[in-house]
Design a binder for these strands. Structure first.
Lengths: 253, 253
DNA sequence: ATAAACTGTTTATGGTATATACAGTGTAAA
DNA sequence: TTTACACTGTATATACCATAAACAGTTTAT
């Protein structure tokens, strides 16, 4: 039996699980991984992921760039760590006494909110199936929405994949909208995206027969709707997913 | 009326639309944007996105790094261009005489295949709503699956969002699986992901009550299934989406 | 007391994207 | 034909970046 601490994990992942032994000798540490993560998130929130560099993070904390490497193996690991950090949803909303549809709605909503609070989240490419603690907490919470349902494990995982993928898609678009609004566009006159005017000249009815009417009507760039529009669209797609799941549950009886 | 060529577009986007004027004077160009794009894709396909640098691309073509800047404004633009380039699905499969469910299946399949053929695709963060020609071709094709359906433009866009987001989620996971298999893991004995052993020691039933059984059964890391498993999972989620859409269509009657 | 193991820093290396200045080249206007 | 110009690809230079290596100081175990 292998009772190893699972050290074949990437170092950044091992760090996030707290699997790093700390020997006693040597001076006390003046920094902590948490401080580094917090500082990095603050920079990324304010100025975007491109503003994050090792020296920038370090100087924010009053240290040199190289000092960070006593705590974190590489910048890529740091990015994984901040991605995992913002997945911490410890104080999760009331979810006890609601049906599975409402639980799934809340799960998707929570996932989207992470992206909205931290738009850089989506700029960090997903390297694979989640294996970090808070990300797995999210998966756990997603699975919880299916706890009472008569589904096998594969079915449950597929549903979580469905929901989280949808949340990611919505988060991406809502991030766009938020950014456009913040950039000073009045929702009333131009709540759509910045390039809708140009697109309308480029998208022809010949080359894009099905996109053309949707673009012209403003539905593609969400022009003629208030800020809650995407919220509505978001809800629409989600309800279709939930309907599909419900239909499947009924078909199994 | 503004009959401008829509020059408020980002330069890389304008390039992809062929909106760049070409004056007559000066020496003939020895390169072309297409050559650059092709060379970049070839490098990325073989060695991953991290192997792509301006000098690497240029030297592959027998030129200096700076020469590329006579064709492409920046590396970021180049990445957008290759992302759009592989979205070219001109020879699209038979889609004429099939019902909408089958059309949607084919659309999702085509989207996933792009990611499988070009695993770097998902490593390029999506900057926003698609505005490049081939990406819009994909959107157009997605909308086409809804042509015969009694839906308004917003409903159609929501459905395309649903389908493309799901394709992206599946593509991500299938990319993982492919990579693991290529790395030499025998599907029979260990078709799961590399870290499932470590995870099983870290994910406790207290902290992850709903994930724990799923992980232990092997469903999370897809251990005990052949390579086509994800194909099955992929199909499962998609059928739920389609059921949900069908349910909605019926409810409108 | 001493050696070991750690700390943060300094310095150095090789990489990156890309601004700028340049010499050559083909076309358009004189 | 001459000349001016707008382009070409290149060479050079800048400023950044991640991070390896060497270092001097500090705490603890022996």
């Amino acid at each position: 039996m292998e009772h190893q601490n699972g050290d074949n994990l990437p170092k950044g992942v091992a760090l996030s699980w707290g699997l790093i032994k700390q020997s006693q000798r040597g001076p006390k540490r003046e920094l902590s991984i948490q401080q580094i993560i917090d500082a990095t998130i603050e920079i990324a929130d304010k100025e975007g992921l491109s503003a994050v560099s090792m020296s920038r993070v370090a100087s924010t904390l009053g240290f040199t760039a190289m000092s960070l490497y006593r705590y974190i193996p590489s910048k890529d690991d740091l990015l994984l760590l901040i991605q995992d950090a913002v997945c911490d949803i410890s104080p999760l909303a009331e979810e006890a006494d609601s049906d599975w549809r409402e639980k799934m709605r809340q799960y998707v909503k929570a996932s989207i909110e992470i992206i909205q609070k931290h738009p850089w989240f989506i700029d960090i490419p997903i390297s694979g199936v989640p294996i970090m603690p808070n990300q797995l907490k999210m998966v756990d919470r997603g699975l919880r929405t299916t706890r009472e349902l008569p589904l096998n494990d594969f079915e449950k995982m597929s549903i979580v994949l469905l929901l989280s993928g949808y949340a990611r898609s919505c988060g991406l678009i809502m991030k766009d909208m938020d950014r456009a609004v913040q950039a000073g566009m009045k929702p009333s006159e131009f709540s759509g995206l910045a390039y809708s005017g140009a697109l309308k000249e480029l998208v022809t009815s010949d080359g894009f027969p099905d996109l053309y009417p949707v673009l012209m009507s403003g539905a593609y760039t969400e022009e003629n709707q208030a800020a809650n529009t995407v919220g509505d669209d978001f809800a629409f797609g989600l309800e279709r997913i939930l309907d599909g799941i419900e239909h499947y549950l009924e078909s199994k009886k």
